[in-house]
Design a protein around this nucleic acid. Structure first.
Length: 666
RNA sequence: GCGCCCGUAGCUCAGUUGGAUAGAGCGUCUGCCUUCUAAGCAGAGGGUCGGGAGUUCGAAUCUCCCCGGGCGCGCCA
């Protein structure tokens, strides 16, 4: 609602200024520091003063007088040195918000026809998921929810690198180190915690390779080739491992309410010759070149081009470095003819935009979490019921950590070089920083810190070394802690209800914890912070909802909910200085669209987390000032009840955008 | 060496395209539960926004330089 009004105000101001002064200006709007100063303010007159060479306050006065009535805005005043402060029509805001709420999701904008792909999770299928992977999945999943909320058609993809080095390492671990048979492995893979087993084995394999580099290279090369070709025992074992681990990951993510539409597997990129098609295109267009001299001789490389900014070419500054090799050039095909990860990713990215001229075959993933259908790519025959995954996307979000920024740039450059500038532009690297551990947390995990590490603010996790906080362990710990708390508070609750509640709180705590930081912030993980349920946390927000529901339940019991509030009374309760407190809560409730727009514009889900927390905070503040059910004035009581219902609806929605459920009691 | 990111209260972080007196949580201290759940609320204390210069009516935000930290730049992914 807030965004609707500010957009209206923006248009009105722009139009008026253009008409009166003949100046085209982008209207900047900000939120005044205090509610007494209105709900939206524009410093546009300062800019205008410069152009018109007149005093800003004078111009502001002129505009305030000349600007006609804007629907939903009661008045526009001049403030400070020349601010234009807009005051919303409080009663109108109330009514509009209630109407929108009554309409429900049907009142959402019409579904857009373009397709958006969000790729997230994409964990190497050779070990259990850790906390860093969860940040990826939670960010991606939340982005999906926000995009869908605003009427976008979104498809969720999870890329499975089932033919890569990491899987190969575990295969070697099983076959060369543990010397197990494929039959044994198939049985073990069905048992619980197979991902934990591989977690340890992967660490062991890393050590094994470190002992003898030459042996490692030979084994890896042979295993990798076998897996890529899909032949023999190595390939068979690799598929058993990768499939079983993917199923583990799906189960872990399902605990966090994260699901996928399609598992895009690298094996199909190879077997269905996606790469061959992309390779031809890249060669033909000259996007990649065969290096004939230097240390990259025999490789197909993509030359690094300086960016073209606003039409003007930045000077090619690598004239001198040209004679030998450019450090930035990226090898796409190795001299032995095998393709690098980036090459495969270019092919995959081309497919996402429908530019490859090829499509996968699709089948249902056999071990999807209960109640969900997940599709996977296959080289075999199509399931006729499969959705049309090959439909070109207009925009693609790739949720990948910040360390891979360079590679993502190379991929986009590949699209650009093939003449797909639009696709390159709509190929968005949703970058985020890593989750590390505080030194204290690392020590808790049994990791021996060097004196230097102990002084640093964080220690990086390493899947290779088997060092990190596993997602399932963390969830178990959270659920244990929340369950103990719920049992203590609600002994009367049925056991399964207690468990469900504890689960919801655990998920709320974890998801909120990962979302409250902006993407560029490194999270130094600590159990103490993650297990905290007070202050700026998910449970704090959930608790506000629970309080409202408590009031509603009790209100219904005593029959306080059936009174209709007259429009006049609504206006009166919200009016003036006395109404400021209530109005502030109402305005906060009506500002979800503002947070959502900001989240999409900046691809920063943290805006929604911030919003939910602030609304919960406003509510708690209100809760302590007003005792609703004992309010003597029947009209006022009914009004306060309606107000809390509005808050509840918005807060529940904000939480659901983050994949957080608000329990009935907690 | 080149490129990207970061530096804001004791700690962890917000601060939207430059805007009004720089905010929140945690921690510390002081209060508030016979009243809709205290996973809560109120209050106090806490700042050269890393440093310097510049652009601007206006800079935590933009530009440049410097300091400090992180990451990337591999025939790994």
């Amino acid at each position: 609602m807030y965004q609707v009004l500010t957009n209206r105000l923006r248009e009105a101001l722009a139009g008026h200024i253009h008409e009166k002064y003949g100046v085209e200006l982008a209207i900047v709007l900000e939120r005044p520091p205090k509610i007494e100063m209105g709900e939206a303010a524009s410093p546009v007159c300062f800019e205008l003063a410069k152009r018109l060479k007149r005093a800003p306050r004078q111009i502001a006065q002129e505009i305030a007088n000349g600007l006609g009535k804007i629907e939903g805005i009661a008045r526009v005043e001049v403030a400070g040195g020349g601010y234009l402060n807009a005051f919303f029509d409080r009663r109108g805001f109330w009514e509009a918000l209630r109407q929108a709420e009554a309409k429900g999701p049907a009142g959402m904008p019409a579904l857009r026809t373009e397709k958006i792909i969000v790729e997230h999770t994409s964990i190497n299928p050779n070990k259990a998921a850790h906390i860093g992977h969860v940040r990826n999945s939670v960010l991606g999943d939340t982005m999906v929810r926000i995009l869908r909320h605003t009427g976008n058609r979104v498809q969720i993809q999870n890329y499975i690198d089932n033919t890569g080095v990491q899987v190969a390492d575990v295969v070697i671990g099983f076959l060369q180190m543990e010397k197990v048979t494929p039959v044994w492995l198939k049985n073990r893979a069905m048992e619980p915690k197979f991902d934990y087993y591989c977690w340890d084995l992967y660490a062991k394999a890393t050590n094994f390779f470190a002992e003898d580099k030459a042996r490692a290279e030979k084994l890896r090369g042979a295993t990798l080739r076998a897996i890529e070709e899909g032949q023999g025992e190595d390939a068979e074992v690799a598929q058993v491992v990768a499939d079983a681990i993917v199923t583990c990951h799906l189960r872990t993510m399902a605990r966090l309410e994260i699901h996928y539409d399609l598992l895009a597997r690298e094996s199909e990129i190879l077997h269905l010759h996606f790469w061959d098609a992309a390779f031809e295109m890249l060669k033909k267009s000259g996007a990649i070149q065969l290096a004939t001299t230097g240390k990259m001789a025999g490789c197909w490389i993509m030359p690094w081009k300086e960016e073209v900014k606003e039409g003007k070419k930045v000077e090619e500054k690598n004239e001198k470095a040209e004679d030998d090799e450019n450090m930035q050039d990226k090898i796409i095909v190795r001299s032995n003819g095998t393709v690098t990860y980036v090459g495969k990713d270019i092919a995959y990215q081309l497919w996402k935009f429908g530019l490859l001229g090829k499509d996968f075959h699709y089948r249902k993933w056999p071990n999807a979490p209960e109640g969900h259908t997940v599709w996977a790519t296959t080289s075999d025959k199509d399931d006729p019921g499969a959705p049309h995954f090959g439909e070109p996307a207009a925009t693609v979000y790739n949720v990948i950590d910040a360390r891979q920024a360079y590679l993502q740039k190379v991929v986009a450059m590949g699209l650009q070089a093939l003449g797909h500038g639009k696709a390159a532009e709509q190929s968005i690297h949703l970058s985020y920083e890593i989750v590390a551990l505080t030194p204290r947390c690392a020590a808790e995990m049994g990791y021996e810190l060097s004196p230097e590490e102990a002084k640093k603010p964080y220690v990086e996790v390493s899947g290779r070394k088997g060092f990190g906080v596993k997602a399932d362990d963390l969830l178990d710990k959270l659920e244990e802690a929340t369950l103990a708390e719920v049992q203590q508070r609600h002994a009367e609750m049925r056991a399964d209800e207690q468990k469900r509640t504890a689960h919801a709180i655990a998920v709320g705590a974890l998801r909120f914890f990962l979302l409250k930081f902006t993407r560029s912030s490194i999270i130094a993980f600590d159990f103490k912070d993650a297990l905290s349920f007070e202050g700026e946390t998910g449970p704090y927000c959930q608790y506000a909802v629970v309080r409202i529901r408590g009031i509603r339940r009790k209100g219904a019991e005593v029959g306080a909910t059936n009174v209709e509030v007259t429009a006049e009374n609504v206006g009166q309760f919200l009016a003036g200085v006395e109404g400021n407190g209530l109005w502030q809560l109402l305005a906060a409730a009506g500002s979800l669209d503002y947070a959502v727009d900001a989240a999409i514009a900046t691809q920063e889900p943290a805006f929604v987390a911030k919003y939910a927390f602030q609304l919960a905070q406003e509510f708690n503040n209100f809760y302590h000032k007003h005792h609703i059910l004992t309010e003597a004035d029947e009209q006022k009581r009914a009004f306060l009840l309606r107000l809390t219902e509005l808050v509840e609806a918005q807060l529940v929605r904000a939480l659901s955008l983050m994949g957080i459920e608000a329990p009935e009691k907690m």
